[in-house]
Write a protein that binds this DNA or RNA. Structure first.
Lengths: 148, 148
DNA sequence: TTTTATGCAAACATTTTGCAGTCAC
DNA sequence: GTGACTGCAAAATGTTTGCATAAAA
């Protein structure tokens, strides 16, 4: 299981508060999509989220709801999407320390990493271009230890 | 017009040679897709490439050919694809110095930049993870000078 | 003449939308 | 009770594939 700084209960509570405050409504589907992402080690596609909800948690969940909710969460800055290059976007919670990804072009494993030098340099570069950084994606493609 | 280190004539000549050597066949369609990318300031989608070929150059060009050719070029490492986040991938030639992108989340302008510190640090990070870096994508999202 | 490339149309995969009904507040 | 949320199915979008023909080597 993925390690987070906040417990799921706390995280869900905070989230429900901010949803209520912004005039939107809570739902079982929203809760479970968060739960699935919170407790997953992987970066999940919309279809995977939907299947886990239906098969593992026996929750009514339509694929349209997953897409709508995921988009909603992205706008609230609660999740991030990742383009693995195989057609379907993957999603992950945005509550850990910021990290980037290395993707093996052979076995498609995703390795997460953080690097302070790169993080700081991105801010410097943005400032140099009169650009207000909100977020960034950095993905390194190559061969992992097992594949080279 | 985008600045390149090689003239289009020279670039096309080199490319045709390496196509011939690898046992594939040259075609007007391949030439024009390269020409369009070479002389374009923008990062173009498959559909845009197709339309420019048909409307501006009056070349027979099917969308399937664009996708097939673009995939072929990517495998030859001649072009790179970019996920702008609006569904359709964008393509650009891979003959300039490596650069990364800043995308304005408001007006969607794409700003190119290079940064040596980041480039070097990526190699260091890859080595630390026993990962053989082949390529990378780094995209900064935020607000450009006009939008903030 | 052999092999690859092409355009077209159909197929496919992912994501979005319209709608009638349901649920949260 | 109002307005947002849901599942379903249909539609839209982006991309790939099959096939008969055309073009390159």
């Amino acid at each position: 299981m993925r390690k987070h700084e906040v417990s799921f209960e706390q995280f869900l509570k905070n989230f429900k508060n901010s949803v209520a405050k912004s005039g939107f409504k809570n739902s079982i589907q929203k809760d479970y999509i968060l739960k699935i992402l919170y407790f997953s080690d992987d970066h999940l596609s919309a279809e995977q989220i939907c299947n886990i909800a239906k098969n593992m948690y026996k929750i009514d969940m339509g694929i349209a709801t997953v897409y709508r909710t995921v988009k909603f969460f992205e706008e609230m800055n609660i999740i991030k999407s990742l383009d693995v290059g195989d057609g379907a976007k993957r999603y992950e919670l945005n509550i850990s320390i910021h990290h980037d990804h290395m993707i093996c072009t052979n076995c498609h494993i995703i390795i997460e990493f953080t690097d302070d030098v790169i993080e700081e340099q991105q801010i410097i570069v943005s400032n140099n271009h009169n650009f207000v950084l909100k977020d960034h994606i950095m993905t390194i493609y190559g061969l992992c230890g097992n594949c080279h």
